[in-house]
Amino acid sequence: MQKDFVLEWRQKYAFNGMLLYVGSTVFICYLSFSLRFGGLEVPVWNALYWIILLFTAVNAIAKGFAQESRGRLLYYYSVVSPQGVILAKMVYNAALMLVLSLLCFGFYAIVIGNPVQDVGMFLVTIVLGAIGFASSLTMISGIAAKAANTGTLMAVLSFPVMVPMLLMLMKMSKNAIDGLDPSVSLDEALVLLAINMIVVTVSYILFPYLWRS
């Protein structure tokens, strides 16, 4: 499994591309919003941040399986167990998403402004979000990579599955922005953790069947 992680790490050329993707998306949002209104309302700021992250996540993680060549997949198949592959991919994607979303937050805060009052809580939300996005999208990218029109399918399959998570995240981050007491967000955090657990368990069980084909 360690080896798998290293293998994943080696193909990080995609990473720079994703950084640029995040940067330019934020900048486009800045240009298209600030010019007109001169500043963003808090709910808009919040929603925009998560939507940028959602699209970044779908793009970043979709590459995970689609980019692998046939030969390398066969190699993985012979070397490691499917459970090892899915866990390694999830961990890698979670780390990737964490870095991307933190950078996105930083850049976003500099360019558009930072209304967040409780930064610690907001960071917790980002961590939960990164793990959640990574775990659910990893499985879906595995499914979508098998089909003919991967790009469309990735979006179609993932968006409805992500929505509950996204709603919880937005609510939590809204609480953090308003500087409410962390105990207010406890419910949402627990639900997020529960959803993550369900998704990870189901992926862990199902992935071997996907892997075989």
């Binding site: 659910s136 499914i143 409805p160 599955v161 509950p164 959803i195 369900i198 996907l210 075989r212 084909s213």
Partner: peptide
């Protein structure tokens, strides 16, 4: 392949539907 992969998605989707 269609049968296997859509079965995988079906289980996954149901798990996502519950919450």
């Amino acid at each position: 392949q269609r049968a296997r992969i859509s079965a995988v998605y079906n289980v996954f989707a149901f798990a996502a539907l519950i919450p």
